[in-house]
Write a protein that binds this DNA or RNA. Sequence first.
DNA 1: GCGGACTGCTTACCT
DNA 2: ACAGGTAAGCAGTCCGCG
Length: 898
Amino acid sequence: MAQRSLLEYAQAEKESANEALPKTAFLSAEAMPAGEKKETKRAFPPAAPENLPPSFFVSATYDGQSRKALVKLYEPASEKIYFWYDNTGHKPYCFTNLSQYELEKIDRLMKHEGFDHFELEEKYDPLLDRKVQVTKIVANDPLAIGGRPQGTIRDIIPEDFPKIAEGMANNEEARVWEARIKYYQCYIYDRQLFPGMIYEVKNGNLVSVKLEKAEENIAQIKAVFKDASAEEIEYVEGWARLLEYPAPKFRRAAIDIEVYAPVSTRVPDPRKAEYPVICVSVYSSDNQKRVLLLKREGVREGNERLPADVKLEYFDKEEELLRAVFDVLWEYPFILTFNGDDFDLRYLAHRALNWGIKKSEIPIEVGKRVCLLKYGVHIDLYKFFFNRSIQIYAYNNRYRDVTLDDVGKAIIGVEKIRLEKSFGELTYTELAQYCLRDSEITFKLTSVEDELAMKLILVLSRISSMPMEDVSRQGVSRWIRNFMHREHRRRNMLIPNAEDILAKKGKTATTAIIKGKKYKGAIVVEPVPGVHFNVAVMDFPSLYPSIIKVWNLGYQSILCPHQECRRNLIPGTPHWVCTKKRALESLLIGSLRDLRVRWYKLKAKDKSLPAELRSWYSITQGALKVILNASYGVFGAASFDLYCPPVAEATAAIGRHAITQILNKAGELGIQVLYGDTDSLFLKNPTKEQIAELARWTEHELKMNIDVDKVYRYAVFSSRKKNYLGVLEDGTVDVKGLTGKKKHIPIYIKNAFNEMKARLAQVKNPAEFEKAKKDIANIVRERYMRLKRREWESLSELAFHVVLGEELYRYTKTTPQHVKAAKILEKNGVEIRAGDLISFVKTSKEPHVKPVELATNNEVDVDKYVAYLQSTFEQVLDALGLSFDEIIGLTKLESFLG
DNA sequence: GCGGACTGCTTACCT
DNA sequence: ACAGGTAAGCAGTCCGCG
């Protein structure tokens, strides 16, 4: 494959390095003669040799024993992980505004066991726009700086300084900076290392590997950007390097465990691990399909046929089963689970401790919220797929419910096996089948679409400078924060504390339309109801990132300290923006946006490229999309470390300004605007010249480009905003916002809607509409009649599916229908948690809902369903000039009389 | 005591 | 722990109604 061959090329260049590859820096189980297996003493930790061929930086952590930063390197030829320990003497630290003289008076600091020494440093303070003198407090142990509940240096300084400062000349408040950055991140930034990139170990040193092919591409990209400023080119190049280097094949295994629990509706507590682990499955990239089963009394073999390549292994003792699983965890560089942080790995670790297995023999590092591995990298796919940005932008909302079943169904088309019995009643082969299916889905979630999930994690790890474990677990605001922190460090900028940004630049000046929001957002244009043929949709590609770039937005530039910038106002706000210094965010986000629009999006569509390379580009542009889509929102999110509401407010205000200007211009040009939302305009039957003129004008006046994103053969608007239907030239039907596409409505109604959709796809011109209208009326009438005659096939067709957003007890203000249904379920002994999907039907009698599982056909309130059918269809029928009541045969008078 | 107008809560969607 | 804007349905409240 293309990426791999680049790497092979690099390896070929380094013959000597290949020779240096150690055969067994770390003994794997199968390498040992069978008889000796039990005595195997693992060479742990698997330290990197003096020379290690090109390897991927996949993770980093702090090693408490050696008191050093530790980098995990994945060597793709041997498919093993090697540990490299810092050899530069780097130590943890933070900054303060206090002088060494003042600090020396703080007793608890000077006597702190982790304190090492002071250094005087000059840093650039972005909030003040000037250089400042700070004292660097260097420690021996990252925990001394922060990370413990109390008695850490970052707490001691503000606590103790006021007492000793009395009577001293300095009446400034004691401040501490950069004390909350994780040590391994600090190490990564300071050494300018890039997680996810390729490094080798040369004479014991960690050095980055250059690949000629990738560098050639980077040169090409620079040529594309030759018109940009030197600074912009520098940033584009920096991003491009992270994105043009190849990915490895990831040797990995998915595991899943089953625990025997006496009460089947309760999930066993992984912190107690009271019940036996009865089954573990392993599904790996090297085609291992293993099921480890615990022998139990009275359990039958079963006669299910498992595929020939599945290996069933029986264990008499649970402890031995656990050890066999641990062998897998010691061996694979990447371990995949679905909810392993909270269940599988946590349970295994606690269960092993309960059995008296020594901590050192357990390959799992159990944390408060995560479970990591001592050897490899654990990716908990539940956390990854739970991430909203991943769900929406990387997987286009294909799955709605973050369960293995739903994600599996949506992404690889494989579902979990449905059980009719409890675990206790299953035969060995039934249990094995069930358990294996779970690890199979887990594995395949990372193998489809050219290992999309693994590569996404890798790319995001590069962009954000985070270990793969962290990037797969944390949200987009952390990714963005980290690359911003990285740039602060690289440019010797003091990273400001959130409260200082807020104190200087916390106020917003516009009023939101929605109660409780902080500032005004985007404009939505009132749609022109009806059917419109030949509709061109123009939009700004990545509008908000463009604004951030063009208007130089960032926490340092907005409301900057310079008098002379105050005239540079942001339209629709009293805020001004700096004219003297480029904001870091503007540069980082702007360059990333341009790179996506001007290179990656094009390459992802370039049919002349080999399929695998194109797939890499498509994954990359998808990763950029995820980041860019969030890059404006984070400034308005209080949880973001560089939270700066006026930046978000200014971005939205400029967006409103831009769209309003274009709206006016379109009017001047005589183009009818049918609709618009935030960054888009729907134009009725425009000429090529009109489009060209609008684009030219926008480019010239607003310094941003707009494109024709798509052309609808025809579009259907009701009078509702964010609700329309458009048919593309190729017959694809885009449905936006209509009830018929919402995921909570009964399939019975959704199917009818989809039939209508299919019929509309065939309409090519106004003349064909008449026939289509008749067919659509028939579809609606048929559904209506069947409902009235109570002829549905099964009750599940009529179920609504609504996510329970909160824990049940937290609904105190109102009790919505799905909550009522959930409460009924709970009474029936079902465990209900926030995030569960509640399926219910509407019934005639109080309380008018019932969980599907408990309802019967004759309880259904048919009229409620008719009403729902009506409201779903009316959103479209209105525009087609059809009336639901007339379709179902009611005269106007009858419908008036009800 | 009942129904309509209204507000607020909740979810799912759009950009 | 990215943002604000919109639609829809239902729950709950208030007020008028002799």
